[in-house]
Design a protein around this nucleic acid. Sequence first.
RNA 1: GGUCCCGUAGCCAAGUGGCUAAGGCAGCGGACUGCAACUCCGCGAGCGUCGGUUCGACUCCGAUCGGGACCUCCA
Length: 444
Amino acid sequence: MQIYNSITRKLETFTPIDKDTVNMYVCGPTVYNYIHIGNARPVIFFDVVRRYFEHKGYIVNFVSNFTDVDDKVITKAIEDEMTEMEVANKFIQAFYDDARRIGSSTKYLAPRVTEYMSSIISYIETLMEKGYAYQVDNDVYFRVGKIEDYGILSGRKIDDLKEGARIDVNTKKENPLDFTLWKATDVGITWPSPWGEGRPGWHTECVAMINDIFGGRIDIHGGGSEIKFPHHENEIAQNIAVHNHYIANYWMHNGQLNIDDKKMSKSEGRIILVKDLDYDYMGFRLFTLSTHYRSPINYTDEVLTNYVKEWEKVRRVYKQSFYKLDLNDALEIKGEQSPELKGIELKFMDAMDDDFNTANAITELQNLVKYTNQIVRQKDTESNLKAAIDLFETFFKILGLDPGVAKLTAQDKALYMAWNDARRNKDFDKADRLREELQDRGIL
RNA sequence: GGUCCCGUAGCCAAGUGGCUAAGGCAGCGGACUGCAACUCCGCGAGCGUCGGUUCGACUCCGAUCGGGACCUCCA
């Protein structure tokens, strides 16, 4: 399959380090608040990446961290008169709740900075020993000038960056581009270190974790495009310093989600939290997957409403087909794909193989909807209909969509039969009553 | 100021140097239907603008206008 590699800016054939395994790491959230719908985009997209690799038979080792120490967490802790740990625990729980709501798996390794403090400290010590880090007072900085490739991921040249450096002329640094590895502080939670009490800078946690968990090299590193620079650039630099090779073979960056064509902004009140999203979450998931992951996506109520409707349409025909088979006790039969279904499946997989083109994959889902709507009212289609159901389930599993349809109870079936009988007997008063009840039960 | 991305029908959104530029929503016209819902069939654009390269560009290059991102914490 082909993956667009941010570092080379090209589509490349994906070849894992170990034949059957995909090791991937996605930069996770700083847990000081509920996540907003922009945070949800990588949570959904990289979940789909994992699901697709699993569909293809790979063992996927998926890791995504929680940044539970940082200025924002500390500020929040002071504001709310809680400990940093309490703040982090609260919002990690909230994150998992939100992730589940939007259909993403939460079963993956999620290391926290606080659990990796000794690894982070020893990582910084290694950087010091190798001459890539230097101490000033009780702070430690990374010596960017020693990295030849610095800027390769974000396409920047060190000279351009120097010109652009407008703020933060920290006179303690040898070079304005040098970044903080360890920061002495007396505000909030601190840890002892060889350089004094303090806490780590943001950029070391991911490399230290990747170093511990994967040995310093992974297949895929993911995250939002806005953290390419400086965060991912700095990860690359640190890994080169320690291992003399790139940290990841493939870099994947998702585009941002805007609201009404503008970046989300808390200060301007233009922000929507996942937990406050007043729409169907599967519709939201479909919405985020309907644009190619590298493109920006614009949220408006109108567009989301469109996808919520679209999801209802998908769900309706799946449900209708599922129940039709269930009523005929045919859910366990073996499906046999018609040429049309084969074609749809093939094109879906082709789209996914093409750099996770979920937009085109969803087009195939829509084709499956149309096709199934055509066959579900015909007679003698059980085997093909079963194949259609199976294909829906395959697509749902890959995209992480859940129609929430379960087998009918005996009572439901009896009700359904009675409705059919009443209609056949033209007892429309009774039929309408039964229809209403079936609708109330969510069967029709 | 520097780096970079985007601009396809009313809306959303794929895609290609050359057959008729996918698909969805909305709209219009049909069909189906006890009523309703659902569903099915048919119908719309020449790709921001101006130049250039080319036998040929929406697709490549340049300029221009418009929108956006990053350079500073940010998924």
